[in-house]
C-alpha cells in the first residue's frame, strides 16, 4: 500500500506546497496534451520525480493495480468494433495514449504520497485555504488520519463476528445492511465521544501549527510547477 515513508530524498526536503503545485501543474499539462511527443517529455519528467522521491515503480504499480486494469482495458474496448475491420487501430492508439497519461499522473502523485507526512499536508492545507474552511479541512484530515485504523478495526471486528455466527451464509442485502448499520452506529458513538473530547479540550479556530518555510531548493521546483501549469495552455 502506498504511504508516507521517512527518508532523506530531495522530495522529502521540499515544502509540501511546492510538491502540490508540481502535481497540479503536471496533471493540467498531461490532460491537455495526450500526444506522443508530450508524453515522452512527461515520461522523462515522471522518471525524475520518482527518482527524486525514491519511489519504487514496481510497488507503485502494485498499489494502483485496479486502476491499471481499467487503463489497460480502455484501449482494447475502444479499438474493438462489431464488424469489419474488427479492430480500429486509430481509436485504440488515441485511447492508449490517454490511458498512459493517467498512469503518469498517478505515478507523480505517488511521489508526493511517499515523501510527505500527513501532518505537513495538513499544515499546507490550513495555510493555503484561508479562514474557517481551511481550519476545518486541516483538522478534519488529521482526524480522518487518526480514525481510519480504528474504524477499519471496527469493520473487521463486525465482519469476523458475523462470520463466526454463519453470517456469511446470509443474503447479500442482509449482510451489507448489517455491516452498514453496525459500522454507522459505532462511528456515531465514536463521533459523539470525539466531540465531547474536543469541547473538553477547548477546540478552537486558532490552534498552533508546525512551521512551514520555503527553502532554497523549493524555488526552482516551484518554477517547474508554474511552467508545467502554463504549458497546459500552449
Amino acid at each position: 500500500m502506498l504511504t508516507y515513508e521517512p527518508d532523506d530524498t530531495f522530495a522529502h526536503r521540499l515544502d509540501p506546497r511546492t510538491k502540490l503545485a508540481v502535481q497540479i501543474g503536471f496533471a493540467a499539462t498531461a490532460l491537455a496534451h495526450p500526444t506522443p511527443r508530450a508524453l515522452l517529455v512527461l515520461s522523462a519528467l515522471t522518471g525524475v520525480v520518482m527518482a527524486g522521491a525514491g519511489v519504487s515503480l514496481r510497488r507503485t504499480l502494485a498499489a494502483y493495480r485496479f486502476a491499471l486494469l481499467v487503463l489497460a482495458l480502455a484501449p482494447v474496448l475502444s479499438g474493438a468494433t462489431l464488424g469489419a475491420p474488427w479492430f480500429d487501430r486509430a481509436a485504440a492508439t488515441a485511447s492508449g495514449l490517454a490511458s498512459y497519461r493517467v498512469l503518469l499522473v498517478l505515478l507523480v502523485s505517488a511521489a508526493y504520497v511517499r515523501s510527505t507526512p500527513v501532518r505537513d499536508s495538513r499544515a499546507a492545507i490550513q495555510r493555503t485555504i484561508p479562514g474557517k474552511p481551511g481550519q476545518l479541512l486541516g483538522i478534519g484530515v488529521a482526524l480522518v488520519f487518526r480514525f481510519l485504523p480504528v474504524l477499519r478495526g471496527d469493520l473487521r471486528t463486525i465482519r469476523e463476528a458475523m462470520a463466526a455466527r454463519l453470517g456469511t451464509e446470509r443474503g447479500a442485502v442482509d449482510r451489507v445492511s448489517t455491516i452498514g448499520m453496525l459500522g454507522l452506529s459505532r462511528a456515531f458513538d465514536r463521533a459523539d465521544r470525539l466531540s465531547l473530547a474536543l469541547q473538553a479540550r477547548c477546540f478552537a479556530w486558532n490552534p498552533t501549527l508546525p512551521p512551514l518555510a520555503f527553502s532554497r531548493a523549493d524555488y526552482p521546483v516551484l518554477a517547474v510547477a508554474v511552467v508545467l501549469a502554463c504549458s497546459a495552455f500552449i
Binding site: 480504528v150 459500522g183 459523539d192 477546540f203
Partner: peptide, 17 residues
C-alpha cells in the same frame, strides 16, 4: 463541533469501507 466530529468520523468510515 458535534456535526464536524460526525463528518470527520464518517469520512474515516468511508475510507475504512
Amino acid at each position: 463541533v458535534r456535526s464536524f466530529a460526525r463528518a470527520a468520523v464518517l469520512a474515516a468510515l468511508m475510507g475504512a469501507a
